[in-house]
């Protein structure tokens, strides 16, 4: 594994988290390829012998660039109350593992995340954690996110909503 690539991808992930935490969603959109597949399936509790705990149909997000743009555009409208008053949020990204793929300009990156969000003076924090299975692509010398599958670790979420991105 090329350490330079690994460092560049880590830097990409930290930069992305910085933009999201600072409500710079428009700049975040620029990090995504036009053909991005952005999914967050529902996690379920099952008997182990009955199969996967990632649901094959139920999702929280199943987005294209266009639908993400629409979600982002809404957050900039004055009456998007999830951003007014603006919550304080932090994406902690760790356990990054980078692997080459069959495509020369694409790398797979697995990372863990913990997102905490505070609104107003409220002591009830939103808390979301899990892992992200990413595909990063080098486009004209710039890293872009081409695919993300977010696995959240709770079957019943400890967040009043998912207005934020992961």
């Amino acid at each position: 594994m090329n350490l330079e690539i690994r460092a560049a991808i880590e830097e990409f992930l930290y930069h992305e988290a910085y933009l999201l935490d600072h409500h710079r969603y428009l700049e975040w959109l620029d990090l995504l390829t036009d053909d991005i597949v952005y999914r967050m399936p529902v996690r379920v509790t099952r008997e182990r012998r009955e199969g996967d705990d990632v649901h094959s149909v139920a999702v929280y997000f199943d987005e294209t660039k266009a639908s993400l743009e629409k979600r982002v555009r809404r957050l900039y409208v004055r009456s998007a109350w999830v951003e007014e008053n603006q919550p304080r949020q932090r994406h902690f990204v760790t356990n990054v593992m980078v692997r080459p793929t069959d495509e020369t300009d694409e790398y797979a990156a697995l990372s863990y995340f913990l997102v905490l969000r505070s609104r107003g003076s409220n002591h009830d924090l939103d808390r979301i954690f899990g892992q992200r299975d990413d595909r990063l692509r080098l486009v004209n010398g710039t890293w872009k996110l081409a695919r993300r599958e977010i696995l959240v670790d709770e079957a019943s979420l400890h967040a009043i909503n998912l207005s934020l991105f992961f």
């Binding site: 199943d62 809404r74 009456s79 109350w81 609104r119 967040a159 009043i160 909503n161 998912l162």
Partner: peptide, 20 residues
């Protein structure tokens, strides 16, 4: 549906803020 209702839904997001 997921764009409008449920935890990621844009309508539901603002509802939950009001209830809180």
């Amino acid at each position: 549906y997921i764009d409008s209702f449920g935890p990621s839904g844009t309508l539901e997001q603002d509802d939950t803020e009001m209830w809180a």
